[in-house]
Nucleic acid binder design. Sequence first.
DNA 1: TTATAAATGTTATATTATTACATAGTGTTA
DNA 2: TAACACTATGTAATAATATAACATTTATAA
Lengths: 132, 132
Amino acid sequence: MQKEHNLSKNQKIIFDLIDKSGGPMKAYSILFNVQKKGIKAPLQVYRALDKLVEIGKIHKIESRNAFIACQNSSCQISKATAFSICESCEDVSEISNTKLSKYLSNFADESGMKYSKYNLEFFGLCKKCKSK
Amino acid sequence: MQKEHNLSKNQKIIFDLIDKSGGPMKAYSILFNVQKKGIKAPLQVYRALDKLVEIGKIHKIESRNAFIACQNSSCQISKATAFSICESCEDVSEISNTKLSKYLSNFADESGMKYSKYNLEFFGLCKKCKSK
DNA sequence: TTATAAATGTTATATTATTACATAGTGTTA
DNA sequence: TAACACTATGTAATAATATAACATTTATAA
Ligand SMILES: [Zn+2]
Ligand SMILES: [Zn+2]
Ligand SMILES: [Zn+2]
Ligand SMILES: [Zn+2]
């Protein structure tokens, strides 16, 4: 179970927007969408994003500079993330695969270095785009 | 064996700089370092970087917006990259592990989606920083 | 209450990356 | 050689992403 966090006003506005969008959103697109709710400056967005990433409610898709709501609501893997990214339509989905996450965590342990986190991004064509 | 590419003048200047640095370099730091060689504009740097990434001579460390010379000179895994990143000193090294790359390539095949590429970034403390 | 940490508001600025357009070199082949 | 296609270069302007600095407010806890 994920620890319950009481989101602040801005954090809630921004999380709800990302979550409802169902996909990755970019910071300045978020900013544009929440200006009517009184959030006017980039920093307000980035601060909320930072916090949401920290507590695992959202993840950053590094290769896209975009943020997506965690799709594993019942788990706590904000430090072990894997995504599938379509290079054609830019659809992103979070991969939830126990074997994969165990394999990667074990791999981390085997190395000389102690890893505390990983992020994996797969690229390709989603089913829709493949069949076009 | 990797296909031999004849690098152009700018590509060679920029690859040599990154390669000799032994670590990740950021685009504007590269720009600063090559200005004495006549490369004056960001675009000249980004164009060379794009090409070098495309042919696998360098890789982009997505979480750091930085570029590193491929450390697997004898192979061709520009589409299957894995890195170990120290969160303290920002040291980066490329992971070359056959089992890992096979595992991830096979994982991709098992999914509904056909992956053509992946990038994995591990984070933690390197040996040096761990022992401090 | 008093102190502490967390969150917010605002302005300015830093950093990363691309668009647009003009020119020059390189290799292929008619 | 000439014509062509392709790749690379030069330059200016601008877009997109992210942070620094500082003042204030709100929530939490001792
Ligand atoms: Zn998640
Ligand atoms: Zn797609
Ligand atoms: Zn490599
Ligand atoms: Zn280190």
